[in-house]
Design a protein around this nucleic acid. Structure first.
Lengths: 236, 236
DNA sequence: TCTTTAATCTGGTTTATACCAGATTAACAA
DNA sequence: TTGTTAATCTGGTATAAACCAGATTAAAGA
């Protein structure tokens, strides 16, 4: 019935969170402090922390320490509500930071999904979205350049949907979504201020106009511990 | 520009999979063999393997070794298609194994979701679902005992929806779904034949009848690397 | 007071070693 | 041939010790 030593540390920290000794955004003791406290090696303490991270209970900031995760943002991928609306509903504060915008050529994979030929001109917009100061979502947005000429002159800290509607009279009538858990490569991890290889939820979203053209193709990388997807649907 | 050593091993294995030297279900060299091959410590080799596991590219069988992950099963949570239908569509083979069935009392959390009072009689069915011999989904299904008397005498290797329809004339008109990435506790991990703490995708599904009663409440634990969710919807 | 600098703290990565327990396999006995 | 047993292989867990590179903080200088 004996359990591994790292499990003891895991349970101890979980308990501290349950009883409120540790609360949201609190900094945990450092790996070295924990290993002293439990008379274990640093690797064992780290093992426990990595376990809690996998469960989404704690997270780390690069070389700054380990912290208790905030509650997950509840998000309905089928809802037309914008990111900012969702955040306000849940009494959070949100910010959107454009990281880069460029006119480039569609990579083969992207071209295929968008129904374009490889190398077609596409705008690529990279944005970082934060909730309560914490980066939780990285977006790579591809837009057919022929569909929205001059797109890059707009302000991308706002809703893209709004820009499409207002300046190009284009709305979305259908969306295809694919999602799966994976992990972040070095560059994306760096953008989200997490360690390379951190787990994430990848969501690919393809939005179509009434004319069945692909208006945008989004690659979204969510912190795995920051979001909970919730949807409801009727059957016939 | 130098990268950590474990990254070199990660890249090497990824490349082997790309070029086909390693293919689906193949066994990888053991941790000790890899550490010899790359002149690294076993911990470094293991670090690389854990990284690949997080990405969903490889998986491990307890004390048996590391293997290349099969392609993900594509699954539409809004589709009325049964598990077996989905699997057949994708040219896979599936099996369903009931692990346990019992009549018990609703835990407070479950009772709340199902709109029952705590301790109400509920059936709890635990099933394991495999694709191509590999366990990928563990289900905990709660059913209001008053709604489906005598439920446990049926065969749960079949579709539950079918049982509800055939024997109780009950159909589902609405489903609420919640999903988020987390990790498995020791017991659930053991059922799925994976190591405790392995990452997973947890899906909670609540199905309602026309009378707005909760017919069943499912807790699903998917191997994080075994599934890809795909859905499509129209906007008005 | 403000800024620069140096010391210190934290996680990130790595080596070498060890022992355990389950899984597999080879050897052996019936 | 079959069943049992023992050796071996594999991952699972753990210790001790290092060094590195950002992040933070305290100290020193302007």
């Amino acid at each position: 019935m004996s359990q591994p030593q790292y499990k003891t540390i895991v349970d101890h920290i979980k308990n501290q969170i349950d009883v409120g000794t540790l609360t949201v955004q609190d900094k945990l003791p450092s790996e070295r402090q924990l290993s002293d406290q439990f008379d274990a090696s640093r690797i064992t303490a780290r093992e426990a922390l990595l376990q809690l991270e996998k469960e989404g209970i704690i997270y780390r900031l690069n070389r700054r320490g380990w912290f208790v995760s905030p509650t997950r943002l509840t998000y309905d991928p089928t809802s037309p509500a914008t990111f900012n609306e969702i955040i306000k509903q849940q009494q959070r504060t949100g910010t959107t930071t454009p990281l880069s915008t460029e006119l480039s050529e569609a990579p083969s994979e992207v071209a295929q999904v968008m129904g374009l030929s490889e190398g077609s001109p596409v705008y690529l917009i990279r944005r970082l979205r934060c909730v309560d100061e914490r980066p939780i979502l990285l977006e790579h947005i591809y837009v057919d350049a022929n569909l929205c000429p001059g797109l890059l002159k707009h302000d991308f800290s706002q809703s893209l949907t709004g820009i499409f509607k207002e300046h190009y009279q284009k709305g979305v009538t259908r969306t295809d979504v694919t999602m799966y858990p994976t992990s972040l490569d070095a560059e994306d991890a760096s953008s989200l201020h997490v360690s390379p290889g951190s787990p994430c939820l990848e969501i690919r979203r393809c939005r179509f106009t009434e004319e069945n053209q692909v208006l945008e193709y989004d690659l979204e990388f969510w912190r795995h511990d920051a979001v909970e997807l919730k949807l409801s649907f009727e059957h016939q």
